[in-house]
Design a protein around this nucleic acid. Structure first.
Lengths: 341, 341
DNA sequence: TTGTAAGCGTTATCAA
DNA sequence: TTGATAACGCTTACAA
């Protein structure tokens, strides 16, 4: 058990270490029988190649970097689980670093953060995925990267995403279909491009359906529930308040739910509320939240897959560059018809 | 910029690579002047030692493993941020793996998951921190580990924790101080030892204060909000329902809040609700949640610090073994006096 | 199809 | 207090 090396395998299989290496790396030019024999011995001895040695000798470290902003939401972990699964499948490991926290030394460029462990590539989540400075830094360092839900510059890297615009469009249409004509939107911070696209989807749907998107029905939140609470509060203070509130993420929708509860409003009887993300809490809020299921985990998996696929490709066009995952409208109890009046 | 190595530093400083290595590793026996010169060159050239080479040649990989169950809560990320910060300070990197998900290859023993990257040690969060099989495996593999909030076996490893029992005791006393005499508790899963200690703290406080802990006032949830919802529902159906509900974590408290809202009960006028953890949502639920602030991030940091400190120690008693962090009672609006009757 | 030999950038051993 | 030089376990030429 203690440290089986490539030499042991070679000896046990009666071949040279180079042949073992070839088998390990799925290189061509190994006899089928030899390959089988080597693989058997590997399995038997439970051999796992030493990543440090591989990384030192070769061009790959089998390490992928994931950088986080210092915001602890369930979304972030969900994202990470997807990335971990994809890494494991491909024999990679995931190294995480925190980025963008000035008072913690984490403000260093990503390329430096990951320099001493020589990761093979980096996965970027929003909002870092849309930060040109981050992309420039990575490219200058020659570090491949893949992005999740980027805003633009789609040609710059492989990416996985979903159609936020269409999802928000569909959710707005669902609200409209229930009979709502005063549909407010609580947007997110501008740096989150997906937040922007969701807002545009809402506006586009209203335009398409012949509804109004009055300026006072558009609020901007911070993707945290208290900002949803405050935004909903302002909305409900309006002379002509909305009958439905569509928040750009679930957390803000929870805030809206709380704002309604504070006023003694019953959801969905007096007010309908819809979210976006389908986080864990969406099942168990009261009432359970109608929302858009975002395939966070799958997007992260796809991004890692694309990144790794790109390693093999000769810096050209033969690797797939993008993958769009399907969202789903999840109808629970927080949306109903508007109050009769 | 591209790949400054120890050789470059040695040449530039006019010393041998071994001397540079000594400076790097803070070994003794280097002239003060020589050391200063080498350090200057290192700073100037922005040199960072190659982790793979270090790991291959030496006994350390400067990698620390963190294993996660597949439950995406904000708690997990908060934990990770603490671990990342401590790692960075000490020049380590954090490698994350998922553990315990059968259908994903993640059921392999931890020592195997981390075998090929040869992490120097592992950080364990509950409930893995209390799983004897996990500890046995790590010890058999000779992998040092530190735990956060372990249940027992305190001598087996360094650990960081808090006094869950006392925290629950204090919260119960706070409820009692508001005048509540029927205080229910929604516990967590038994495998979470902290959940058990919180329940015991509740029971102990009631005993100390001369109150009752009726069996029907003790519910068991799953640390997820829907189980808090259901438990509260049962509690409120009782012939003699509690006037205060204390949940073993915030998520379940949110569920209790929702259950109250469903029945048209106003919190805290008709019912008081307290949580445990002080997660993000606690600030922004309606009403904002009175809860126990658990120093999750600090505990993770302390665990990493203890783990790393242990590396130097000669497998003996000279390294600190435990650190207890302070909790705080956070009073917000979800607790008030019981309804007059 | 297979093998030999030379690194990769560190740390460890031993000598100066 | 310093410095040659040999590992560490693998991959990458280059041969056979």
């Amino acid at each position: 058990m203690p440290d089986v090396t490539i030499t042991h395998i070679a000896r046990a299989a009666g071949v040279s270490i180079k042949t073992v290496s070839r088998v390990l790396n799925r290189e061509t030019g190994v006899g089928a029988e030899t390959r089988a024999r080597v693989e058997a011995v590997i399995g038997q001895l439970g051999y796992r190649p030493n990543v440090s040695a591989r990384s030192l000798a070769g061009a790959r470290s089998y390490l992928i970097g994931l950088a986080f902003q210092k915001v602890a939401t369930a979304y972030g972990l969900e994202f990470q689980f997807g990335a971990m699964a994809a890494c494991r499948r491909a024999g990679y490991h995931l190294v995480v670093e925190q980025v963008g926290d000035e008072d913690d030394g984490a403000a260093a460029p990503l390329s430096r953060l990951f320099a001493d462990i020589r990761v093979d590539g980096v996965i970027l989540a929003p909002p870092a995925a849309d930060d040109p400075a981050v992309l420039d830094d990575l490219e200058a360092a020659g570090l491949p990267y893949a992005r999740v839900a980027p805003d633009g510059a789609f040609g710059r890297s492989p990416y996985a995403g979903m159609d936020d615009h269409r999802a928000a469009f569909e959710m707005t249409r669902l609200l409209w279909g229930h009979g709502h004509r005063r549909i407010a939107f609580i947007g997110g911070p501008d740096i989150h491009s997906s937040a922007r696209r969701r807002r545009e989807g809402w506006a586009a749907a209203l335009a398409a359906l012949g509804g109004e998107a009055r300026p006072e029905w558009l609020e901007r939140g911070m993707f945290l529930s208290h900002s949803g609470f405050e935004a909903a509060d302002r909305l409900l203070d309006l002379a002509e308040p909305p009958t439905a509130i569509f928040a750009a993420n679930d957390e803000m929708a929870f805030g809206a739910l709380a704002a309604a509860a504070k006023r003694g409003l019953s959801v969905p009887r007096d007010l309908s509320v819809a979210g976006f993300d389908d986080t864990y809490g969406a099942r168990s809020s009261w009432p359970p939240l109608t929302t858009v299921r975002q395939p966070v985990r799958e997007m992260a998996e796809a991004a890692v897959d694309l990144l790794i696929a790109g390693f093999g490709a000769v810096a050209s066009e033969d690797a797939p560059r993008a993958k769009l995952l399907e969202f789903a409208l999840v109808e629970r109890a927080s949306v109903g018809p508007p109050p009769a009046r």
